[in-house]
Computed example of a mutant assay.
Amino acid sequence: MTPTELAEKLHIRDAVLLAGRLLLSLIFVHEGLQLATHFEGAQKAMAALGVGTPLLFATIALQLGAGLSVALGIVARLGAVALGLFCLMTASLFHTNFASQNELLHFEKDLAIAGGMLILALSGAGRLSVDRVLIGMRGRGGEGAKVDPAESHS
């Protein structure tokens, strides 16, 4: 048995996709919770950057909603695209003072996360996802589940 055949048999690809999804989503779920639980401080900090309260609410909703979407594998492709675009916008709007090493690091971090999210959007969540469980349940119910060919790895 070749290493590739062994990996396929053990579904390592899906385990790696799950680990990647969890690692990518952690920062967004954590930051969304931080913003929500420390709302007044976040509101003041965002106002100093020219970001109003409605956009702060939208940011919290995006980070928590799309972050959980990616982590759990519920419409993960959509969540990944949303967070990838969010990272690109954040990098280009808030981290452009390249004279500061810290700002440059945040810019590069946002680009790297955006790249990971775009790769996830192309690859899909894999078999270890809530969507896959729901598709499996629907398929057992006799409705004949339609499976995204990009998700099929058998």
Rank of each mutant, 00 (worst) to 15 (best):
M1Y: 09
T2Y: 06
T2S: 15
P3E: 12
P3F: 14
T4Q: 15
A7I: 07
E8H: 13
E8A: 09
L10D: 04
L10V: 05
L10N: 01
I12G: 00
I12W: 05
I12D: 00
R13C: 01
D14K: 04
V16I: 14
V16Q: 03
A19F: 09
A19N: 00
A19H: 00
G20H: 00
G20P: 01
L22C: 05
L22T: 01
L23M: 15
L23F: 15
S25M: 07
L26M: 14
I27R: 02
V29P: 03
V29W: 03
H30Q: 14
H30L: 13
E31A: 13
L33V: 14
A36Q: 02
T37C: 05
F39P: 01
F39Q: 08
K44S: 12
K44W: 03
M46N: 06
M46K: 05
M46H: 05
A47G: 06
A47I: 05
A47M: 11
A47V: 10
A48L: 05
L49W: 09
L49R: 13
G50C: 08
G52L: 09
P54M: 01
P54L: 00
L55S: 14
L55E: 13
L56H: 07
L56P: 11
F57I: 12
F57C: 09
F57L: 14
F57Q: 06
A58L: 15
T59G: 14
T59K: 04
T59M: 05
I60H: 01
A61T: 13
A61G: 10
A61C: 10
A61Q: 10
L62M: 15
L62S: 13
L62P: 07
L62I: 06
G65S: 04
G65A: 04
G67W: 05
S69N: 02
S69H: 04
A71N: 09
A71H: 03
L72A: 07
G73C: 05
A76L: 12
A76T: 15
L78H: 02
G79I: 04
G79K: 08
A80I: 07
L83D: 05
G84N: 06
L85S: 09
L88T: 06
L88F: 09
M89L: 13
A91N: 01
A91H: 08
S92L: 11
S92Y: 10
S92V: 04
L93E: 08
F94Q: 08
T96F: 06
A99W: 12
A99G: 15
A99N: 15
A99K: 10
N102Q: 15
N102K: 15
N102E: 15
N102F: 14
L104S: 12
L105R: 12
E108V: 15
E108C: 11
D110Y: 02
L111P: 03
A112T: 14
G115E: 10
G115W: 08
G116V: 01
G116T: 06
G116D: 06
L118N: 06
I119H: 04
A121Y: 10
L122S: 13
L122E: 05
G124H: 03
G124I: 06
A125W: 00
G126D: 01
G126Q: 02
R127W: 04
S129N: 05
D131F: 07
D131Q: 10
D131H: 10
M137I: 12
R138T: 06
R140G: 00
G141L: 14
A145M: 12
K146G: 12
K146T: 12
K146H: 13
P149L: 11
E151V: 08
S152C: 06
H153I: 04
